[in-house]
Design a protein around this nucleic acid. Sequence first.
DNA 1: CTAAAAAACTAACGCTCGTTAGTTAATGGA
DNA 2: TCCATTAACTAACGAGCGTTAGTTTTTTAG
Lengths: 163, 163
Amino acid sequence: MRDLAETLGIEAASLYNHVGSKEEILQEICFRMADEFFTSIESAIQAVEGPSERLHAAIGAHLRVIAANSDASGVFLHEWRHMREPFLKDFRHMRRRYEGIFRELIEEGISAGVFKNVDPNIAARTLLSATNWTYESYRPNTKFSSDQVAELITTILIEGITI
Amino acid sequence: MRDLAETLGIEAASLYNHVGSKEEILQEICFRMADEFFTSIESAIQAVEGPSERLHAAIGAHLRVIAANSDASGVFLHEWRHMREPFLKDFRHMRRRYEGIFRELIEEGISAGVFKNVDPNIAARTLLSATNWTYESYRPNTKFSSDQVAELITTILIEGITI
DNA sequence: CTAAAAAACTAACGCTCGTTAGTTAATGGA
DNA sequence: TCCATTAACTAACGAGCGTTAGTTTTTTAG
């Protein structure tokens, strides 16, 4: 809190005119990012047709949210563990719902005969996990824009790297 | 340190007969796991021939190390940030070398015409990141053994999910 | 312009943490 | 058996943390 106050050019105690507690900040970041992910992905999915295209759009949307909020994404991905109950339970539940969106996209693809008969749960977690390195490694990248990186990752995940 | 001592059935101060400092434990875990990853992957790679088979073996070996040391893997993957310099720099350097192994495997596959012309750096990071969810989610799994999960993930990453 | 509300300040509390000092008990080789 | 080493113990230090109380300054509204 003292670091945060210093960054704001304020005394630490003054923070408490704006915020109830340190943990409240954590909750705010985690659940705000969750909203961000959900709204972004839902609008991306309903914008296109076909399982492959929709999964492509979903991964792209997910990556775009991370790229636009890399610091908050780090909190969302790692620091959520330090929330107290019942927020911890709520967060876990929310995350299962989010993973569920990807799982269903994969299941649709399997049913449609477009995707292999992979385990949808494992595949969903693998896809999501594969995107999570981007928040820490792509602050300043000159070789590719974050949109290009998103496209490269998405292609690897959906089509594999084998010719 | 007090929690750790309690787990050991010991007073916190007694820990210091066995360990120099808290950070020393962190270093020990991080660099021991690094050794584990390197030795495991190197022996896995030289055991088979062909780019695709070798990448397959590498990912499998990586996943096996995580499965066999899930708690330590959590530290290796997340808590290394809290090390002091110069260990932090050493760790980052080591991790780049480790990623380099995967990058080279991918480059070999591209040269051999087996893999698509993906960016080797991005692909390597994506592959490794894709495996990182396993340390937290597969404590008690009944549906698949950790070897089966490893096989499923590896197949998804190398061949993609598209038919 | 003035009163109220918001937001800054100073000071400090209470707690936890990693760690040290000094001491006592257990262990193991000569 | 004796002594040196090892490893446990008790007690406490000093620093850092999130936070609160009380006060003063700044902003806003009528």
